[in-house]
Computed example of a mutant assay.
Amino acid sequence: MSTHNESKINQLLQLQPPGVVLLASWLTEKGYSLDLQKRYRKSKWLESIGSGAMKRTGEKVDVTGALFALQSQKGMSIHIGAKSALAYLGKVQYLELNSKKVFLFGDKNEKLPAWFNQYQWGVEINYYSTSFLPPGRGLTTIDQAAFQLKISSAARAMMECLYLVPEEQPLLECYELMESLNNLPPAKVQTLLEACTSVKVKRLFLYLAEKANHAWFNHLKHDQIDLGSGKRSLVKNGTYVAKYQITVPQELENYGH
């Protein structure tokens, strides 16, 4: 390989932190043609992990390195959410968390690329594309070894858990998660609740927050949150909570009494 190309690959390797996926489309935008990328792979600088995606040869990449590429190189809103985000934020101390399962959320128009779905990350990926919350709203940044990653804040992650109720997330476990969220900023919670389009999520969030007796709950402007009309039943033969017009498991309603 020519000295010029070696200099160019060194510049490239400084552009992105170690441990992240390098997308062919992003490299092309940065002036690294597909032909040059092919030569880098042939020279063992880079190795393919699927169509349109590479990593530095000899490096290990995990789901966070892949998400970093989607966020920083493609500008996508796909992020770690729900219970997985709460685990990253240290909010799941006493709950059994299956670290082999990762919950990801993205906008309704965003799909995980084929290379992402086909690569063996060593964890089960559960991806939900939905716009019940605006993309990018209510995210926070966490530090990885060599880069920063956007994930759901505690308030958004809680709402994502409730979005998965009852099919993929037990409501009683959501209450146990809510109990640990005693210091949420009311203004940020308010903004998310006002932007949320899921009546189920909003009613459950307020019900669980009130049941957990969180001080921040009292600072919310309830009249500015649209809770829709009509009853919502989450379980058969449950207990009806008139204030929020929801039917919840009797076990939950009696919890802590």
Rank of each mutant, 00 (worst) to 15 (best):
T141G: 06
T141Y: 06
T141R: 15
T141K: 14
I142G: 06
D143F: 05
Q144S: 02
Q144D: 03
Q144M: 13
Q144Y: 04
A145C: 04
A146K: 11
A146G: 05
F147K: 04
F147G: 05
F147H: 10
F147S: 06
Q148P: 05
Q148L: 05
K150P: 07
K150E: 14
K150R: 13
I151R: 08
I151A: 10
I151T: 12
S152Q: 10
S152I: 09
A154G: 10
A154C: 10
A154E: 15
A155T: 07
A155C: 12
R156G: 06
R156A: 08
R156K: 15
R156D: 09
A157K: 09
A157Y: 07
A157E: 07
M158R: 02
M159H: 04
E160L: 01
E160T: 02
C161L: 04
L162Q: 03
L162V: 04
L162C: 04
Y163L: 11
L164N: 04
L164Y: 05
V165H: 02
V165K: 00
V165G: 02
P166Q: 01
P166T: 00
P166C: 00
E167H: 03
E167W: 01
E168L: 10
E168H: 13
Q169T: 06
Q169H: 12
Q169W: 06
Q169C: 14
Q169M: 15
P170R: 00
L171R: 00
L172S: 11
L172C: 10
L172Y: 07
L172G: 09
L172V: 12
E173M: 14
E173N: 10
E173K: 13
E173D: 11
E173Q: 15
E173P: 00
C174W: 01
Y175G: 05
E176I: 03
E176Q: 15
L177G: 03
L177I: 15
L177R: 09
L177W: 11
L177E: 08
L177M: 15
M178E: 09
